[in-house]
Design a protein around this nucleic acid. Structure first.
Lengths: 198, 198
DNA sequence: AAATTAATTGAATGAACATTCAATTAATTT
DNA sequence: AAATTAATTGAATGTTCATTCAATTAATTT
């Protein structure tokens, strides 16, 4: 009994506004005060839903990691094969979806945070491992069907993700659309080469 | 006439203390006050040498980028060939020197800053291009002597650096020494494979 | 309608911060 | 020793911030 809790919806709303501020001014300049003002509420309400700024940042990390996963969500239709799924994942990973879904500066700020906070580091490790395992399985399935020749699916999956992370590190500095797309295309090609399709 | 300027030495000293604080508490928590206290001086002295915190951060970036370059400084002896130099660079790049020279968290915080500050972005671009051009030349020299077979030295150099950046992105989360070294070894091997030595 | 529970506000607190400014101290030159 | 220049200090300012707390408002149930 009593009033219905708005906690989940409110938290989500606050995180999204916090993320907008972080995008515009940098994570280190995203304050509760600014977030509250933009969200049209009192700063103390943010403290009410998250107990501290630190907790809000944890919320932001979850928010970002969830988005991260979206890129790898490939709809599996009736006629999809391990190969088509694998290629689709590569396609997604080396696409401009990243630019739409992520602010590079906030992403690296969060990563920097992970490297000083074991809780956050654990969440990142978990995500990265999930992605690698996922890709590994599709590589393994392809290998079983003789579609590609790789010595070690786990190693190959890892290498591809290293390529992805390195690619975006470099590309985040590239402003020119043409150069950006050319790079993306090259790295993607290299990733597919690593798969060694027959 | 008048007193000799200590500017250069003092600035360097301040930057180094600032870096130490950033390492321990994160760049976003590295304040002039803390830096001054640790350095045994008044905060206003820091403002005297750098006009603002922003300028001090610029100084830190230069400090870090200079260190970055050190890794690529390979002593060229009398009997060094393009191949030995190239392999030595690869050796350095995939070595644990990084761990000694760099704090990962501070590095990514600085990179995040670059993505919101065109001045800093320019410095990073300049560095990354220098490194790539440098490696490209050695690849080109090797190619001329028929030591390796690559279609496009510039593209290969770029790919190797993408591998490097991706490698450290991933490895910065790895705490276990064994796993770290194994990864480093694998990525290095892949980089050498890209060079396609005959 | 009374009771309950959560949402929300608003004021207040104290800490940390970057920066300014005037004053003082210390080298160095003429 | 007088003049000059830079180093250094110390106090002060005003801002922003996260967080606390008590009070009020709004749903929801019995």
């Amino acid at each position: 009994m009593g009033r219905r809790s708005l906690k989940d919806a409110r938290q989500k709303e606050i995180i999204e506004v916090f993320y907008q501020i972080a995008k515009q001014e940098g994570l280190e300049n995203a304050s509760l005060a600014k977030t509250a003002e933009r969200a049209g509420m009192n700063p103390s309400l943010i403290i009410h839903y998250f107990k501290s700024r630190e907790q809000l940042v944890y919320g932001l990390i979850e928010f970002i990691l969830d988005r991260y996963l979206e890129i790898f969500n490939v709809p599996v239709s009736a006629n999809s094969t391990p190969k088509t799924i694998l290629l689709k994942i590569i396609d997604n990973v080396f696409s401009k979806k990243w630019n739409v879904l992520f602010d590079d500066s906030v992403s690296y700020s969060c990563y920097a945070l992970a490297l000083r906070d074991e809780t956050i580091a654990g969440r990142y490790r978990q995500l990265l491992e999930t992605l690698r395992k996922n890709m590994e399985q599709y590589i393994r399935a392809c290998k079983k069907e003789g579609l590609l020749q790789v010595a070690n699916p786990a190693v190959t999956a890892d290498l591809i993700f290293v390529l992805v992370d390195g690619a975006y590190y470099y590309l985040s500095l590239v402003k020119q659309e043409k150069e950006y797309e050319a790079g993306l295309k090259r790295y993607k090609k290299q990733a597919i080469a690593l798969l060694n399709f027959v």
